[in-house]
């Protein structure tokens, strides 16, 4: 089945089995390995992508569901060679240890800041509660999102 959608700002069409998981299509067919798979059952958030701007789990979506949708993966956050403010804040605050949860964390944070440009630390924790960091580096991740909200909140 031919599936048309918008991926990181470009319209594309792929020929694939519509029941394949979105995470497999991104990683294996399209080479976008920034999206990670960990639990494969919706518990960990590593495979988070944005669908029409809203964070969703690419391990629990099949290709047919993204037909006509706007998909943003971690690769799509960079614009004109510049990292997204949330990505910058993660770098500046050392909010990355092994890095496996990072793409999902960043995308969950982007969605959180879109809904709530100035979240408190508790709200940040709640906004990222669907993402697990097994290095347990949560403190610095929350620091990074808090800093990103200070830097970008007013502009949006």
């Amino acid at each position: 089945m031919k599936i048309h959608f918008r991926l990181n700002g470009s319209d594309i069409a792929i020929e694939t089995d519509p029941c394949r998981r979105v995470v497999d299509i991104l990683r294996e067919d399209l080479g976008l390995t920034g999206t990670k798979e960990s639990c494969g059952s919706g518990e960990c958030g590593a495979c988070t992508i944005l669908v029409d701007g809203e964070s969703r789990l690419s391990c629990l979506m099949v290709a047919g569901q993204i037909s006509g949708r706007k998909i943003t993966t971690i690769e799509g956050l960079v614009s004109q060679g510049e990292m997204h403010p949330v990505q910058k804040a993660f770098v500046d605050h050392g909010a990355v240890q092994c890095g496996f949860c990072t793409p999902g964390m960043v995308l969950a944070a982007v969605d959180l800041l879109r809904r709530n440009p100035h979240p408190g630390r508790q709200e940040i924790r709640r906004g990222l509660s669907g993402n697990i960091c097994r290095c347990t580096g949560y403190q610095k991740i929350v620091d990074a999102v808090e800093a990103a909200s200070r830097d970008t909140g007013d502009k949006e």
Binding site: S55, R56, S129, N131
Partner: peptide, 9 residues
């Protein structure tokens, strides 16, 4: 219920 991502889906 669930997590933000689960509530979006």
């Amino acid at each position: 219920l669930g997590s933000p991502q689960v509530r979006h889906m």
